[in-house]
Design a protein around this nucleic acid. Structure first.
Lengths: 337, 337
DNA sequence: ATGAAAGCGCTAACAA
DNA sequence: TTGTTAGCGCTTTCAT
């Protein structure tokens, strides 16, 4: 159990500091010596003590994932977690999760959290990723952070995907099936998603020469309930849409529920598509056409970048990762039964 | 930033050791002194440095959640995570997540993980919670652990719920609606759930005086695909069941998919119920009748108990937490349309 | 019930 | 490029 750095140093015939340098990837160790020390490390099965490293180096080896609402978006968070864990694997870093509800005293609560756990790096997702006061405060604390899908340009490191183009793609798919009257249950205001997905919807209409009808866009907040309500509003019209593009899968499920309650067949009477490709899009019947949001990749990249930025604080990186439209059975030509 | 224990000691006019005792809840500090020191701690906004505590006390302040498969059961894991985080809140402990795929060298991989991260406590969920070799190894390493829903009696601390009775309850619900021929798509073998849920199903039949027909039980593995396959097998019979009890919600969704493909109405032509009360049970249409598995409570209790067991290593605790049957629209009287 | 001194295992300055 | 010497901030002996 207690193999310490000095045991390795003795075994390799060097000083502890040199072993430390190898451990920390310091460049000024000759290749030959480095190899010998690495051999000793393996031979003794040495693993450095994180507390000791942390204390001496004033680091915690913790990267924190800060998110908002575990309830309504648990599969989104879960996918991010998988990505974060992938990135931490093979590093001395551990991931810790910190749900914080948005509130006025958010900044001071984050202060408390930082004081207590002293994470070396943070990853923020919306809506915190859009909270400029919070980002400001993290800068003041000189903490490295990365955001995911932030709409703020303030963040030095942000990983997202082209949500606008993705939304346009999926609406274009509906148009290509023959739909002309397409409803949209919008995203939660404040999220970048709100504008991105709405603009993508409008882009697709414009390119197809379909006039934008504001009344076909109803408010939503990413919840199932807002899908039900949005579908009610849209389907109660005298000229109901033949297809509905919901801002996310949960909302799309709400739309499908309302169609079900009205005895409307999906996709026969109404095509529905979502966004995110959460597990429910495969579990529901018919399978839901949606956009695969590359959560894992985004989270993995975010962690990789933010860990790199610990060494290089000036680093900036704004990256889009690829997405995919997943065509399933919930969309078809209008009027087809 | 750098408020240290000696600052607190100076402020309160005591030695650092006494402050340390207060921090660690040591009983041998007089109430008056304790109060004074606590006031100093608050006044200075002191938060102990986890790395320093960890190094000096040979602890990591980490509790690890060990699980198996993030894919097929992400909402189950997510709920556990919420419970684990709740329990860690207001403690100096941080939760870390460690997915490990089951394999022959699982034990040695856990050894590596323990060597690297030195968690003070572990929480195991099935199937790891049933891995006696693994539990054995943790005992050897003198590591505190708690299991969730373990079928092994080896675990000193286990939190579960009465799955057998819950299964019986939900099947009794089907019987009370008038169903007599009820199919069951079984759980993954190896999980405690397999026997518990199957036995509960049999209990309910027996109590209702319905003969157990082995051929109405088809194998499953908690996946959507096994629900589809199981439903195919059951619905292809000359005397198909009027209701199907699926081992979990994902499987139930597969059953509903197969019903959908055959043009069978749920619940008109077929009642379906699941188990777990994952988010999909609300998102799907009709809403899925299921058993609410109290994941959060189980995880919270497991962490609370295992942290307590650090101080009291002999501690044993085997607890069942309450569950609830959630009646939704996927079950109705047979033949009703 | 409280205090003094000695580390825990590592890294950061500084030296060589 | 490598080694020496001090700590990092806390808890633990062992005193008292």
């Amino acid at each position: 159990m207690p193999v310490r750095i000095e045991d390795v140093a003795a075994h390799a015939g060097v000083s502890t500091k040199t072993v430390s340098r190898v451990l920390n990837g310091h460049p000024s160790v000759r290749a030959k010596l480095r190899t010998r020390i690495e051999a000793s490390i393996r031979a003794l099965n040495y693993v450095p003590n994180p507390s000791a490293r942390g204390l001496a180096g004033n680091r915690s080896y913790l990267v924190a994932l800060l998110y908002d609402n575990p309830m309504s978006s648990s599969s989104y968070i879960m996918e991010l977690i998988v990505g974060v864990l992938q990135a931490c694997k093979e590093t001395p870093y551990n991931a810790v999760l910190h749900p914080f509800e948005a509130s006025d005293d958010l900044v001071s609560r984050i202060d408390g959290f930082v004081a207590q756990h002293r994470p070396d790096a943070l990853v923020l997702v919306p809506p915190h990723a859009n909270n400029t006061r919070l980002l400001q405060r993290l800068e003041e604390l000189d903490l490295r952070y990365a955001t995911i899908s932030s709409k703020s340009r303030q963040s030095r490191i942000d990983i997202g995907f082209d949500e606008r183009r993705a939304a346009a793609d999926i609406v274009e798919h509906l148009i290509s099936l023959g739909h002309r009257r397409i409803g949209h249950v919008a995203s939660l205001k404040g999220h970048g998603a709100h504008a991105w997905r709405l603009n993508g919807y409008r882009d697709a209409l414009r390119r197809a020469g379909i006039a934008y009808d504001e009344s076909l866009v109803v408010p939503g907040d990413f919840t199932f309930a807002s899908g039900v309500a949005g579908a009610k509003a849209l389907l109660d019209r005298r000229d109901p849409p033949t297809a509905i593009f919901a801002a996310n899968d949960d909302t799309a499920c709400g739309v499908m529920r309302e169609a079900y309650e009205r005895g409307l067949a999906v996709p026969g009477d109404l095509s529905v598509c979502g966004f995110d490709d959460t597990p429910v899009s495969l579990q529901i019947s018919p399978g839901l056409t949606t956009v695969h949001q590359p959560c894992r990749e985004m989270a993995r990249l975010a962690v990789e970048c933010v860990l790199r930025s610990i060494r290089d604080p000036a680093m900036r990186q704004h990256t889009h990762v690829p997405y995919q439209v997943r065509l399933r059975a919930s969309t078809a030509a209008p009027g087809k039964r």
